[in-house]
């Protein structure tokens, strides 16, 4: 720990380094910017992997359309929540609004499972192993996650676990939607376990790194950076 500074010296040091800054735009606006850029990237990924051949037929299925829309909405609202969590004193509901769309998403899976049971009996709930969903969702989500991380780092690390968790949810939900647009994996229970499960798992793991990824700048580090810039 460096020697304690005099209060007046600190105020002078901060004042001397008070360059004009642009206040961050509204979290919703930043979320839309992130979503638009990430959507372009996801469109390229889906085009590269190939759109599923039955897409036109599937998108007219209300259960599939709801599931896809809920994934996209969870993504954009979670991104807005992550940006909101980095702005001190913003309303707490903004952080948790993504939960509403997450519930709709889970509801769509529940409807899908019920339909499978109705059509195939209990065997409709048997899932085959599809462990590759996890690395695929991880790989697709990395660029979107890197972009949102660079954006949330401009905020304040008031709630690092929540911020990183929401940022990871936004990225992985988008990657899951890309997977649904490319791969034919339709048994609802399989999609729920292997795709939605991967989203939940990756979000949980990422949020554990909240404090490592987002932290306050300490006084000594800031003063040292002022001195380094002056040299």
């Amino acid at each position: 720990m460096a020697r304690r500074m005099l209060n007046q010296d600190l105020i002078e040091a901060l004042t001397d380094n008070c360059a004009p800054i642009r206040p961050l735009p509204h979290p919703a606006w930043r979320a839309l910017v992130w979503f638009a850029v990430s959507l372009c990237y996801v469109a390229i990924v889906v085009a590269a992997m190939g759109v599923r051949p039955d897409f036109v037929a599937k998108i007219s299925d209300p259960q599939f359309a709801t599931e896809l829309a809920a994934a996209f909405l969870t993504s954009v609202v979670a991104a807005a929540g992550a940006f909101s969590a980095g702005c001190p004193a913003r309303p707490a509901w903004e952080r948790f609004a993504a939960g509403f769309f997450l519930l709709i998403w889970m509801g769509a899976f529940a409807v899908g499972c019920w339909r499978d049971v109705d059509a195939y009996g209990v065997s409709g709930l048997l899932s085959h192993s599809d462990i590759y969903c996890l690395p695929t969702i991880l790989a697709i989500s990395i660029p979107a996650a890197a972009l949102i991380l660079s954006m949330v780092k401009r905020g304040a690390p008031i709630a690092p676990f929540v911020t990183i968790g929401l940022a990871a949810l936004a990225s992985t939900a988008l990657a899951e939607a890309a997977l649904r647009l490319s791969f034919r994996q339709d048994p609802a229970v399989s999609v729920c376990i292997w795709q939605f499960g991967s989203v939940v798992l990756l979000t949980g793991i990422a949020s554990l790194f909240g404090r490592a990824l987002l932290h306050w700048t300490r006084r000594d580090a800031l003063i040292a950076s002022f001195q380094a810039h002056r040299r």
Binding site: R4, L10, L14, P23, L24, R154, A156, R218, R219, L222
Partner: peptide, 23 residues
Amino acid sequence: EDVVQEILVSIHTVRQTYDRRRP
């Protein structure tokens, strides 16, 4: 005093998060 100084430094480093339309 150290804690207060750290708070001032935090205010400085995240001053872009203050929205002028809010309290």
